[in-house]
Design a protein around this nucleic acid. Structure first.
Lengths: 237, 237
DNA sequence: ACGACGGTTCGGTGGGGGCCGAAGCGTCCC
DNA sequence: GGGACGCTTCGGCCCCCACCGAACCGTCGT
C-alpha cells in the first residue's frame, strides 16, 4: 500500500461519502437544490434521527453539504454547483435497470408524474419541461449540441433580449449538459441553465408545487415560453 | 429504509466500487486507457494478488472494467468511455489539497515530470500537451469555450483538412471538457478528443514512452503541431 | 416555568468487507 | 514432463462503520 498515491486515497474517501445507501438517498433528495432539515431527511431515508445526524456530519465534513442552523433546526443543502454536479454525474451513470420500481401508493404515483413533468435539478430546470426548453433552444439555433454543448452567439443575445442576466466570467461552466434521469436525454445546466431557471421562478413562469420538488408552469409561463421559445404546453404536459 | 428508492441503492453500489483505496488506485491507473494485467495492478496497488483478484471481480461485475483473457494473463481495461468519464468526473472533484505528495525517488520524479508533460487520459491527450492543443484550438477559433464547450464550424472543417475522421453521429458527446489533474484546466475530450489522440499516435506525432502511460512528442509531431495549430514545443516542454 | 420538540452524543451491537497465506488450477517455457 | 509463473478460490482474521436507543442539550411555544 506504500505505492498507492494520495490521489487514490482522496478519490476513495470522496466516493465513500456516496457509497452508503442512506447518504445516497439524502444526496438525491437534496438534488432539488433546496435546503432540508435533518428530520425531514431522516424520515425520507427511513433511519433514526441519531443515525442521520452522523451522516450529515460526514457529508458536511466532506464538503458536499453546507449547513445553516436556524433555531433548533439544522438546514442542510448541497454545498455548491460542484457538489451538485458530482451527484448528477454519478447518478447519470447508474445503470437504468436498477431504477425501475413501481410506485407503491396513489399519492406516490401522482408525485412521480409531477416530477417527470417538471422539477428543479439543483439550480436548473429538469424533467420534460427542462428537455422541452433545451430542445427549443437548440431548434432555434441558440444552443448547439451537434459539436459539443455551447450557447451560440445568437443564444447569448437571446438571453439578453429576454432580460436574463448571464454571467459568463465566473469559474463555473457557462453551459453544460446534464443527463435527465427521467427522460434519459441532456438538458441545459451550468451558469446559463441556472440563470434561466432563476428567471423562470422569479418572473412567475413556474412555481414550486407545495413543499415538493416538482415545479409547474403557470398560465403566464405558458404564454411567455410560447412567445420567446415557441414551445407549447404539449411539450411538457 | 422502506422509503429509500432503488436509485439510492444503485447510486450507493456504484460509488462503493470506487470507495476503496485499492480499487481507486486501479481505476486511476487504468485511466491511461491501456490494458493492465492483474499482476501489474496488484504490484501497483501494493496488495496480494489474491486480494486484487477479488477487486477485479467486483469492478468487472459492476461494469466499470472489461476483461480479456490471454493465456495465463488477465488483461483488464476501463469498460468504455462512460466508465472512463465516471472516474474522470470523480477524480476531478477530489480536493486538490489531498493530492500533494512529494515524489519518493528520482525515478518517480522523472516519471511524474514526463506524465505532467504529456500523457493519455483514457483515449485523449492530457497533461501540458493536452492543454496546449486545447488552447491552440480555442485561440484559432476552432473550439469555443466561452459559452460552453463545442467545436465551431471551422473546427469541424479543420479536422477534415488535417485528415482526421470525425464521427459526430454516435451516442458519445462530440466534444467534452475533461479537467486535467496536473494542470487544473480543461482539455478536449469526447469523440473529437479521441479522434485527435488516435491520429497523433497513428501518424507518429506522439509515441508512448516505454511501458509508461506518458507520451512524448516526436520530431515529426513538433513540425506538424506547429504547422496545423501553430503551437511550439515550448508550450508543453 | 414548563413541556414539547429537533438535534446531538455516546455506548453497544452486528454485519460487511478488505486483507492475507495456503492450496489449487491452468499456461508457458525449457 | 517438470518447474516456474499468473491467477483464483477458500478459510480465517480483523477492522470499520451503519444502526439503534437512551440520555442530554437548546430552542420554541404556551
Amino acid at each position: 500500500m506504500t505505492t498507492k498515491d494520495s490521489r487514490a486515497a482522496g478519490l476513495a474517501s470522496l466516493a465513500s461519502l456516496v457509497a452508503d445507501e442512506t447518504r445516497a438517498a439524502c444526496l438525491l433528495a437534496l438534488l432539488d437544490g433546496r435546503a432540508w432539515t435533518a428530520g425531514e431527511l431522516a424520515r425520507h431515508a427511513g433511519v433514526a434521527a441519531s443515525t442521520l445526524s452522523e451522516h450529515l456530519g460526514k457529508l458536511v465534513a466532506g464538503g458536499l453539504l453546507a449547513e445553516e442552523r436556524q433555531g433548533r433546526h439544522r438546514y442542510v443543502r448541497l454545498a455548491d454547483a460542484r457538489a451538485a454536479q458530482l451527484v448528477e454525474d454519478l447518478a447519470a451513470q447508474v445503470p437504468p435497470a436498477a431504477v425501475r420500481r413501481p410506485p407503491r401508493t396513489l399519492r406516490e404515483a401522482g408525485a412521480g408524474a409531477a416530477m417527470a413533468r417538471g422539477r428543479t435539478c439543483y439550480d436548473h430546470l429538469a424533467g420534460r419541461l427542462g428537455i422541452a426548453v433545451t430542445e427549443a433552444l437548440t431548434r432555434r439555433g441558440l444552443l448547439r449540441q451537434d459539436t459539443g454543448f455551447a450557447l451560440t452567439d445568437a443564444g447569448v443575445e437571446w438571453f439578453g433580449a429576454v432580460g436574463i442576466a448571464l454571467d459568463l466570467s465566473g469559474r463555473r461552466p457557462p453551459a453544460r449538459a446534464c443527463l435527465d434521469w427521467t427522460e434519459r436525454r441532456p438538458h441545459l445546466a451550468g451558469a446559463a441553465g441556472a440563470a434561466l431557471c432563476r428567471h423562470a421562478l422569479e418572473a412567475g413562469w413556474c412555481e414550486r408545487i407545495g413543499t415538493e420538488r416538482a415545479v409547474r408552469v403557470t398560465a403566464l409561463g405558458s404564454r411567455e415560453l410560447s412567445a420567446v421559445l415557441g414551445v407549447s404546453p404539449g411539450a411538457w404536459e
